[in-house]
Design a protein around this nucleic acid. Sequence first.
DNA 1: CAGAAATTTGACCAGTTGGAAAAAACGTTA
DNA 2: TAACGTTTTTTCCAACTGGTCAAATTTCTG
Lengths: 231, 231
Amino acid sequence: MPLIKVKMLEAEGGQGAVKPTGRKRARAQTRIQREKQEVILEAALDVFSREGFRGATIDQIAEAAGMSKPNLLYYFPRKEEIYKRLMTAMLDVWLAPLREIDSDGDPVTELRSYIRRKIEMSRDYPRQSRLFANEMLQGGPRVLDVLETDLKGLVDEKVQIMEGWMDAGKIVRTDPYHMIFSIWATTQHYADFDVQVRAVLGKDRGGEGRFEDAARYLENLFLHGLLPKER
Amino acid sequence: MPLIKVKMLEAEGGQGAVKPTGRKRARAQTRIQREKQEVILEAALDVFSREGFRGATIDQIAEAAGMSKPNLLYYFPRKEEIYKRLMTAMLDVWLAPLREIDSDGDPVTELRSYIRRKIEMSRDYPRQSRLFANEMLQGGPRVLDVLETDLKGLVDEKVQIMEGWMDAGKIVRTDPYHMIFSIWATTQHYADFDVQVRAVLGKDRGGEGRFEDAARYLENLFLHGLLPKER
DNA sequence: CAGAAATTTGACCAGTTGGAAAAAACGTTA
DNA sequence: TAACGTTTTTTCCAACTGGTCAAATTTCTG
């Protein structure tokens, strides 16, 4: 049960495809509607994640989706609704790994696989990560309330689990909030700063293997740190 | 001697203030020119770091700078030049801490103070961080070459230092590139994702103290990891 | 202070932007 | 196949965009 479902769902509104005709009873979506909406959202993810909300234009999205602007507007009557749809969908997917952290699991295993999953997300859904990053850079005007309620709630919940692990001496006593931040930061970095990562690694090391390297490095960092065990 | 000075300096061009009149010999800048350019760059940093290059408008910048658009264009004849100026200045400041890493210093001290400095940068110059992040999200079209040459060069240099430390058994043998990435990621996170950090920490813990907390947590993470020393 | 140079303003422009409206084309089903 | 609902296209618009230009104003310098 996704905790982050949220009030942004109010994005629906409009007439075109979503709320078919006039005041009649809403009809089930046609095949075309489902397909085209999918194509549009896919194209919009591309554009919004690169340019941000203001920087993206409906024309760009329409072109990427292979249709005319008015045609696109038939499915999503305003730019903002496409964006909102993407944001809710993204948040839902994006936080799944955090939700999966299990208080009953072995702390080391749980942390390890959380890091793994987050790196895999950066590898497999980099645009979603960038979409979110873009929103954050702008000060999160369209998701701030969600962050303060749903996200904070979810994090608080997981923080308690970690405090339990600390009490049990399974992990070192430290700040659980910053712990979570550091996992987010290090893993999402590989999506958000992908260009930089590849530029610095160079042609030879910048291949797909970089995600595996990153995962291995991060596991060690988080578990053991950089200092040798015996000195 | 800043390694990152770069070809972007070609940003200069134009007529207005920068290259005073016609083909005459370039004259020294007046007081007003220096002042206004400063005001403009300050305002532009605000806008660009929030909206990205495309999302920002000259009007917004002009208003933030308290002047009319044509007046602003008198000092910087095109939008792109303001942006380039900001980018070079930012890169220079932003990479200073990395340059300072000293191969002769004590590894632990050096790493510690690198992390410290980076966190302080995020606290004191968050907009510069966001400006850079924005550029990265867009795929770095205006700095890619700089990253591939100057930045990579600088990083390679520091990577060697770290390999030296590993050879000497001072720090654990690990991937030095990802090591640097993880320091960048964790520290810059506090500037780039500031909204999120504050939303999750909540009113009580989201005050200025968060940077000190972050620094303390990160020092421990990087040196010792999350696992207890003896189990 | 006069004159020149530097700065600021207002009017303007062509291209882009988000979006509306209506008509045309298409698909489905009674 | 006729009628209806769905989808697409064409045309259009007002606001905004980056930028120009000449005239007006202010500041500096001798």
